[in-house]
């Protein structure tokens, strides 16, 4: 009993320490972003562009396919089981506010979050991070800030893209499969999305972007001695990012 309590206490203190370190890392990055405005901008901008390209542009195809698939599923089920008046509203709300932000998060975590952890871990093992420090280039400014901004920007771009793909793509795919099923024009579906729902889903993905970037980078920094640590911290980072996004998603939905 005592061992169990001691174990629980240790785990709780680990969790608290982890979140405190995450908050510190984020705070240092934001302070540096403000205090070093313009400093080294051309270098940071290049890293930022690459991050947006990798996380955003290169993820367009998987996000499109997944969004159309989920859009088709939700619209088909709504058409099948809901009274006509509810189909448009319910489909739009479920997709825009709940499903698409989480779906986009899972894809970005699996694709870019894990890559980021491995990249930072490798940089640490190769002395690249120590070399940056010796060159007077703060890690938070050169490594974390562009990844943070890139991740958030890519999330917002991807979610916007996912709306259109899920609503319009899902509608037309379902229409092609079952001609008589869609008893309303596609524009109704797009107009069925409330502005406030869009705002809340953008709030969600912004928080997802921050959490995924910080979690992925922080787990990369935990790699210290050997390449064998890379898969360990990468899988931890994936699980932790996924759990945090699921919790944030629920919390924001309850608040909204």
């Amino acid at each position: 009993m005592n061992d169990a309590l001691a174990n629980l206490g240790r785990r709780s203190s680990d969790v608290v320490r982890y979140f405190a370190e995450s908050a510190q890392l984020l705070a240092r990055t934001l302070v540096l972003a403000v205090s070093m405005r313009g400093h080294g901008f051309r270098v940071v901008r290049r890293v930022l562009t690459m991050q947006i390209f990798f996380t955003g542009a290169q993820a367009v195809l998987p996000v499109t396919i997944a969004s159309i698939a989920v859009g088709t599923l939700v619209i088909s089920q709504a058409t099948e089981y809901l009274p006509g008046d509810y189909v448009v509203g319910v489909s739009a709300v479920i997709l825009v506010r709940e499903v698409l932000p989480l779906l986009t998060a899972f894809l970005v975590i699996g694709r870019s979050g894990t890559a980021m952890t491995i990249e930072i871990g490798s940089m640490r093992l190769n002395d690249e991070l120590a070399a940056l420090r010796m060159m007077g280039i703060p890690f938070e400014h050169f490594v974390l800030l562009p990844r943070l901004v890139g991740m958030v920007s890519a999330f917002v771009l991807l979610i916007t893209y996912a709306y259109v793909a899920a609503l319009a793509g899902g509608y037309y795919v379902w229409f092609a499969i079952s001609e008589s099923a869609a008893s309303f024009p596609v524009v109704d579906l797009l107009e069925g999305v409330d502005f406030i729902d869009l705002v809340w889903s953008v709030v969600k993905v912004t928080l997802f972007g921050v959490v995924v970037a910080v979690t992925s980078v922080q787990h990369g920094l935990m790699v210290r001695h050997s390449r064998r640590e890379l898969p360990i911290y990468t899988s931890r980072s994936l699980v932790r990012s996924t759990l945090l996004c699921a919790i944030i998603n629920t919390a924001v939905s309850i608040i909204a």
Binding site: S122, M123, N126, D127, E128, A130, A131, M134, M135, G136, I137
Partner: peptide, 15 residues
Amino acid sequence: EASTGFVFEGGGLLE
């Protein structure tokens, strides 16, 4: 900044 440099055993170049 820029007052010191370090040559690591493995180079420490950005990969």
